[in-house]
């Protein structure tokens, strides 16, 4: 009798573990943990804050002292054409180089295999105009968003890079790009909200299950910030904040995200 019970338990365990390994079976009522890792690099090198020295195509050598950007409004697409959109309140993340707790976005998504990843670099215009009581978590100007909010021209800074370069004629050879602009509240103005969609198939599709964690590993190539659609010269543009040229920088950085691999 005891034997039968043991056998039953063991076979049940084997059965259930087999089931887990069978990635074709998903229960969309279950949610699994998915993280999206933002691995900042410069060309072929890992980005080393303060110490790494890099050169752009204008021949300007630079170091990076600060790199932060907002990722929001994440959604994932399946092969069957359906999309899962992460509830908006759980979909705001500040990525910060040098802060281990802030190198990824952690979300919960229904079990399944996903072929595309879409996110915004920045904060959607609606949230930029919402009541202050709805600006909590990553959006709290007294918390995570400290230094990522313009008080004088109400709105979030989407992307912030600061560093030094001998090409800069500013004080301390500083360069700084603080990029924001959600399109304006009552009058229309620059809109630097960028939506990025990545095909996950070449690098490996994430297979999300309740019982495990899945990680989408992205490479974020800061070299593309300076050299892509346009070539940005630190000498000519040492400080870019809320001005028309910021759109050129945002157009460049929208292309710096690449899917490298997935850890299933």
């Amino acid at each position: 009798m005891k034997h039968i019970l043991y056998t039953a338990i063991i076979s049940l365990l084997i059965f259930s573990s087999c089931k887990k390994d069978n990635t074709n079976e998903y229960n969309s009522n279950n949610k699994g943990e998915l993280s999206i890792e933002f691995d900042n690099i410069v060309g072929g090198e890992n980005l080393a804050l303060n110490t790494g020295s890099y050169t752009n195509s204008s021949g300007e050598t630079y170091k990076i002292t600060t790199l932060k950007y907002f990722i929001s409004n994440i959604s994932l697409g399946k092969a069957d054409g359906t999309t899962y959109t992460v509830p908006q309140n759980d979909s705001y993340f500040l990525i910060e180089e040098g802060n281990e707790d802030a190198d990824h976005a952690s979300i919960e998504v229904p079990e399944g295999e996903y072929k595309t990843l879409t996110f915004m670099v920045g904060i959607d215009s609606l949230r930029n105009t919402k009541d202050v009581s709805e600006r909590t978590g990553a959006l709290d100007p007294a918390g995570t968003a400290n230094g990522m909010y313009w008080g004088w021209n109400s709105g979030y800074i989407f992307f912030k890079i600061e560093g030094t370069s001998t090409a800069s004629t500013a004080d301390g050879n500083m360069f700084m790009y603080h990029i924001g602009g959600f399109g304006g509240y009552s009058s229309s103005t620059i809109n630097n909200i960028k939506t990025v969609t990545l095909n996950l198939e070449p690098g490996g599709t994430p297979k999300v299950h309740q019982a495990k964690e899945t990680n989408i590993h992205l490479m974020v190539d800061i070299a593309k910030l300076f050299d892509n659609k346009s070539h940005i010269s630190i000498k000519e543009h040492a400080a870019v904040m809320f001005d028309a040229y910021s759109t050129t920088i945002a157009d460049n950085y929208a292309t710096m995200f690449r899917h490298d691999h997935t850890e299933n």
Binding site: Y149, G151, N153, S154, S186
Partner: peptide
């Protein structure tokens, strides 16, 4: 419905952030 000389702030609740952090 807007604040400051240039109207850069559109919600009174967000206005104090400007002088506090300037």
């Amino acid at each position: 419905n807007s604040f400051m000389w240039d109207g850069g702030v559109f919600d009174l609740d967000l206005q104090p952030v400007a002088p506090l952090t300037n």
